[in-house]
């Protein structure tokens, strides 16, 4: 990983973002709602370059829950990409997919999860899975590259086959913990 970067992102050689993109294509996902995260940057670039995918950049993640509810009403399948901090913004809006029995797959890049440097990321990162599950979401985690494709595929299938919010959490260990260039355990 790049220890000097201000945001965490996968190593350039990591190919799991491309595997997620391949799953989105195989599942006929044509609307992608997102608030950017460095961990999703490669996947976002792939989606933006795809003329069959409508990318909607949100001002806050809860818009994505409402947006994708509307897309589903119109027969379009979408996913929401966000960082774990954004999950906190979605809590009440998750009432909509529960109320309407709307598929709502989310792919969440974790912060505050494994080797976090920024103390502000820890409260929400530590609570992400708990609050998603408190709002009726089926949550699966991928912490190693080999789990990503299967987890994302299962998350999207469970959403659209069983009509509910679902989420894959992409662990910080997978993405690479940010250290601002400091050695592990340093000041």
């Amino acid at each position: 990983m790049d220890r000097d970067a201000l945001e965490m992102r996968p190593d350039a050689a990591a190919e799991w973002p491309d595997r997620i993109y391949a799953v989105l294509k195989a599942q006929n996902i044509t609307q992608v709602a997102l608030v950017p995260d460095a961990g999703h940057s490669r996947l976002i670039r792939r989606c933006l370059a795809d003329n069959e995918i409508t990318v909607v950049t949100l001002t806050t993640e809860e818009e994505g829950i409402a947006l994708l509810s509307g897309a589903w009403m119109g027969g379009v399948k979408g996913v929401l990409l966000m960082q774990s901090s954004g999950v906190g913004n979605c809590i009440n809006m998750l009432s909509l997919p529960i109320l309407h029995r709307t598929p709502m797959p989310m792919i969440v890049t974790m912060r505050g999860d494994y080797g976090e440097f920024n103390p502000a990321q820890v409260p929400m990162g530590n609570a992400t899975q708990t609050v998603l599950e408190a709002m009726g979401t089926l949550v699966r985690r991928a912490d190693v590259p080999g789990d990503v494709e299967a987890c994302v595929d299962a998350t999207i299938r469970m959403a659209f086959n069983t009509y509910r919010p679902t989420a894959t959490l992409l662990g910080q260990r997978l993405i690479g913990a940010k250290t601002f260039g400091k050695a592990e355990g340093g000041e």
Partner: peptide, 22 residues
């Protein structure tokens, strides 16, 4: 008609998702 019972703050952007889909 889709009258909402909740999701306060989400009506307009739900319309956007539908308008883009249809």
């Amino acid at each position: 008609n889709l009258p909402l019972w909740g999701g306060m703050g989400g009506a307009a952007v739900m319309g956007l998702g539908l308008a883009l889909a249809q």
